[in-house]
């Protein structure tokens, strides 16, 4: 620490040094806590406390009226495990995560490789692919509700031109999830694209020059230099993307309200519905905690996988 680098004057006795040292300690302690206090206050009030309280609520029958606030043990959890809607929404979330993560990583990589070739008009390419990421979920969802409109939407218009019959993308249980995934790809791929692009720019140019002198072609360079160098970035992107996809709610709620027939309803929406339309705070908390447990397990699994790779 910086404070210990100030050497004590030569004339002081050991006793004085000790006293000065402990005073400095006490002062650092005070100042340290004063500095972290504002964050700790909001951290405890709006994160730790709700986390603890939510856990408590999950063992009660609490509702918005304040009725049923007594402890009921594991009843909520038992009910959740028997609740077919809970299972369906959980599976929807996991299915969405699988369906969205794969293209969100691969397409991001392809876009970044294409843009990184260094064509003129860099700003235009970046604008095209990154801009949607800055849109609010409601704006992006509104755009796509319109794109997917069965009679008037651009999607069916373009597909109609090649002879595909009209599809009610968001109303057809067969297509709704895919439609949501495509919209999500359009909306959020920009962030992963940006991370890949930054990583590409950080690969030393000399490696390409050296390999070119050795007669390596573009494909060879891509396989032997670019892709291996992007390894750590890919790990980071996959981790962030899985966690982001598991939390899906906005675009689905806005575009399909979880329908048709619950085929797109994610687990966060179910927590929201139980909590804020059914007003069953206790039961909603139990489902939220089951979801949280899954997130923690997946995070730990990812961490173990990546540390093993790193070792």
């Amino acid at each position: 620490m910086s404070s210990t680098t100030v050497a004590p004057p030569r004339t002081t006795s050991a006793e004085q040094i000790r006293r000065g040292e402990s005073e400095r300690r006490a002062r650092d302690n005070r100042i340290g806590w004063a500095f972290v206090a504002p964050f700790v206050i909001v951290f405890v009030m709006f994160l730790v406390w709700p986390l603890v309280h939510g856990f408590y609520l999950s063992f009660t029958g609490e509702s918005i009226t304040g009725a049923g606030g007594q402890l009921i043990g594991f009843d909520n959890y038992a009910e959740a495990l028997r609740d077919p809607i809970m299972w369906r929404s959980l599976l929807n979330t996991l299915w969405f995560t699988v369906l969205s993560t794969v293209p969100l990583v691969i397409v991001a990589l392809i876009l970044a490789l294409l843009v990184h070739q260094g064509l003129p008009g860099q700003w235009l390419w970046r604008l095209s692919f990154f801009m949607p990421f800055l849109l609010a979920s409601t704006v992006a969802a509104q755009f796509w509700i319109w794109m997917y409109n069965p009679q008037l939407g651009l999607v069916n218009y373009v597909l109609g031109a090649v002879g595909v019959e009209q599809i009610a993308w968001l109303q057809d249980p067969q297509w709704a999830m895919l439609a949501v995934v495509v919209m999500t790809l359009w909306w959020t791929v920009g962030f992963n694209f940006l991370l890949y692009l930054t990583a590409l720019q950080n690969i030393p140019e000399q490696q390409y020059e050296a390999s070119a002198l050795d007669g390596a072609g573009r494909w060879r360079q891509l396989r032997s230099i670019t892709v291996p160098q992007l390894g750590p970035t890919t790990v980071l992107i996959v981790i962030l993307q899985v966690l982001a996809s598991l939390k899906v709610f906005d675009q689905i709620y806005i575009m399909t309200q979880g329908g048709p027939g619950g085929v797109t309803r994610p687990v966060v929406q179910y927590v929201f519905e139980v909590g804020f339309t059914g007003y069953r705070f206790g039961y909603a908390s139990a489902i939220a905690y089951i979801f949280f447990a899954i997130i923690v397990i997946i995070s730990i699994g990812q961490m173990r996988l990546t540390t093993r790779r790193g070792a």
């Binding site: 730790v48 939510g54 609520l57 966690l243 598991l246 927590v271 909590g275 804020f276 939220a288 949280f292």
Partner: peptide
Amino acid sequence: LFWAIIAAIIIPPQVLIVPLFYE
């Protein structure tokens, strides 16, 4: 304290909506 804050990064805000509204 630092480790507690780092650990909190994995808490999804969506999990907290009910108790936060209650608060």
